[in-house]
Design a protein around this nucleic acid. Structure first.
Length: 104
DNA sequence: GTTATGACGCCGT
DNA sequence: AACGGCGCCATAA
């Protein structure tokens, strides 16, 4: 496998797809699972570039703080939150997810 | 070509 | 707990 950007991107997608429903993974974890080391940022960008019709469950990706990274006023943020809730993930009053419970 | 920014994380203070 | 600095890497300007 060539270490091209495309293959890296594909590895990221693969890892995200492997996240079990009802659980969430952090960017850092995904980066490590994808063999990208500590390039957590790389994961964020890969997801941001995903098309709207993607089948990737990007909503299961949150940051290490346990909350959604997208801007609060953004649609994506609301969508993500809604989907996670549908999967049985609960948010605290501070819009935070308990990673110790839902973390992959 | 270089510089700045970002869906991030870790560590030190 | 909060804030700043550094690393890491892709994309935009």
């Amino acid at each position: 496998m060539a270490d091209t950007d495309a293959s890296n991107n594909q590895r990221i997608r693969q890892v995200v797809l492997a996240i079990p429903a009802g659980q969430v993974a952090t960017y850092g974890t995904i980066a490590e699972k994808a063999g990208l080391g500590r390039a957590a940022r790389r994961v964020g960008h890969a997801l941001h570039k995903l098309p709207a019709d993607t089948r990737i469950p990007w909503h299961r990706v949150v940051n290490a703080q346990g909350h959604l990274s997208l801007p609060k006023n953004s649609d994506a943020h609301a969508t993500q939150r809604e989907r996670l809730k549908l999967e049985g993930i609960e948010f605290s009053v501070n819009d935070k997810i308990d990673l110790r419970r839902y973390g992959w």
